[in-house]
Every structure is written in structure tokens, then in C-alpha cells.
Write a protein that binds this DNA or RNA. Structure first.
Lengths: 137, 137
DNA sequence: TTATAAATTTGTAATGATTTCAAAAACGAG
DNA sequence: CTCGTTTTTGAAATCATTACAAATTTATAA
């Protein structure tokens, strides 16, 4: 699916900036921050403002076109991959990994008591394989 | 268990300030922020510094005596309730609720592929029952 | 106890992500 | 094209958190 189709699917008007941000997130596997998104996109769109990146991401998140990852307290990461999955945050290198996550099991965990669930986030923190093997040396 | 015992259990020296923070979190069911913890404790300990609250919480989290909740990107909440449970964040009122969470099912979701898991966080966002009934009026 | 070292606390200043806001620019309907 | 609406922009303000060095408290040993 193209970025344009993705935006339309969520009822978001496709401006140049919105398309660029959406496109960027769809291509990215690294869960970028606002800073990273801005730094890369300003190369393509020199007039781009960081505020626009913030506005756009807020809009995308509000319409569930992308997911906000708030594992690191300080700054938000964004994820354009919308299928169900969990995340792993490495305490050593700071990278965030996508993890498989069985949807059926995840669903059985949902509380059933009058709360309306709009989104679910599951994440782990610890040490990734790479940092682990570095430590063993 | 007393706050003092709790600290000792995690190998943390019990200073007046640390005891106060630990005690506060053990009594609290509302997942307070640094600001809230500080504002309340400074009444008891007038010389208390906000930096100390930060230091103490960092220490408690590093030793797993409390959990840091990072649902809201902007600021961290803290949870002194150490049994396994998930959280629910209400998008409307901003309150964070404790939710039951079946440990066995949560465990089956864990990825088994070389990642060393040190902590697990599961949370939902949506509308709480109270805000839901307000909206229906 | 007393001296000394180590751990902890404190307050201020700096940092950095995010928000606010009003003006400018782009867009869309008639 | 023109008017009204939406979107973007940039600068300034806000707010949580971190850095850091001085001051205080606590632990240790003579």
C-alpha cells in the first residue's frame, strides 16, 4: 500500500508533508524519533518545520495510522507498522526491536470490565542478543 | 511489608528520603508523577529536593523495587505495586488504572530468541467507565 | 569520641523534547 | 480570481529531566 492510500484509508488529507512523514514511517524499521524524522525529511523538503512533523505525527496517531512508542520516557518513537506486534527495548544500546506477538493470546489478556480499549501496547526491556554477546567477551 | 523492609529486600540503604518515597508509593494507588510525589513529601520533609526524588526513583527502578510507567510520553509515573498487572490509561481524564493480568498468559507471549527480558509492560489506552458514562449524557 | 572517607542530599543551571501561538502560505469551493 | 478554510512555519515559551558541584549526613577506623 502506498503512503497516499494509507492516509486516505484513515481519512487524512494527503499534503506533501503528511505524505513524506507517512512514507518515511512505512519505509523505516527503526522506530524513529521526531528528531530523526525531521533531520532526514528536511533534506527532501528544505522548508519543512519541526512543528509540522509534530503536528503530523499527532494527527496520524490520533487517527491510528501510526503508533506512538513511549518506552523511553524522554522522547517518543513512532511506528508505521500497524500489524500486531510487541517491542523490545535494549537497555544497553537503546535500540527498539519489533517482536512477534500472538494476537489470540494478547486478546485473552484484555480486561473485560467496562473499559473501552482503543490501543494495546506490550513491550519488554532488557538486553538484546548483540549487546549480550559483547558483554560475554 | 513496611517500606523499610521493602528497601532492605532490594538492597537499598534506608535514608529518611528513600523511606518516604517508598512509603508514599506503597500507599498510593494513583501512579504518581515526580511532581506529585515531591509536592506531597515536601510537606513532611521541608528540606526535600526534587533532585532527590529523581535520584531515589532512579535507584528504586534500577533495583526493581518500583516500576516506571511511561505511557504518557511527557512524564513518568511510578508504581510501587510489584505484583504482575497491566495498566489502563484513560485518554479523556488521564488517569492510570491497575488492571488484572494473567501471569501465565503473559509469559506465553514472551519472545524466545536470545533477548534477555528484564521487565515487561503491558498497557491499554482508551476510555474509562466513568468518562464513558459522562459522554453518554 | 574524633578524624576521615564515602555516600547522600541539595539547589542551581543547563538541556532537550514538546507545546503554544500568530503570521504566512497553500488549498478548495464558488 | 476571490474568499474562507486548512495547513505550514518559525520563534518563543513551557516543562520534565539531567548535570554538577557544594553541603550535609552517615559509616568506618583509629
Amino acid at each position: 500500500m502506498t503512503a497516499r492510500e494509507h492516509l486516505e484509508k484513515y481519512g487524512i488529507r494527503p499534503s506533501v508533508q503528511r505524505l513524506a512523514v507517512m512514507q518515511y514511517l512505512m519505509n523505516s524499521k527503526t522506530h524513529p524519533t521526531v528528531e530523526e524524522i525531521y533531520a532526514d525529511l528536511v533534506k527532501e523538503i528544505p522548508t519543512l518545520s519541526k512543528t509540522t512533523v509534530y503536528n503530523t505525527l499527532d494527527l496520524l496517531v490520533a487517527n491510528r495510522a501510526v503508533t506512538q512508542i513511549t518506552i523511553e520516557g524522554g522522547k517518543a518513537h513512532y511506528d508505521g507498522f500497524t500489524h500486531i506486534h510487541s517491542h523490545f527495548y535494549c537497555n544497553e544500546c537503546g535500540k527498539i526491536f519489533d517482536m512477534p506477538c500472538d494476537e489470540k493470546h494478547l486478546r485473552t489478556l484484555e480486561p473485560k470490565n467496562g473499559f473501552i480499549i482503543e490501543s494495546t501496547q506490550l513491550y519488554y526491556t532488557g538486553i538484546c542478543p548483540e549487546c549480550r554477546s559483547k558483554n560475554e567477551n
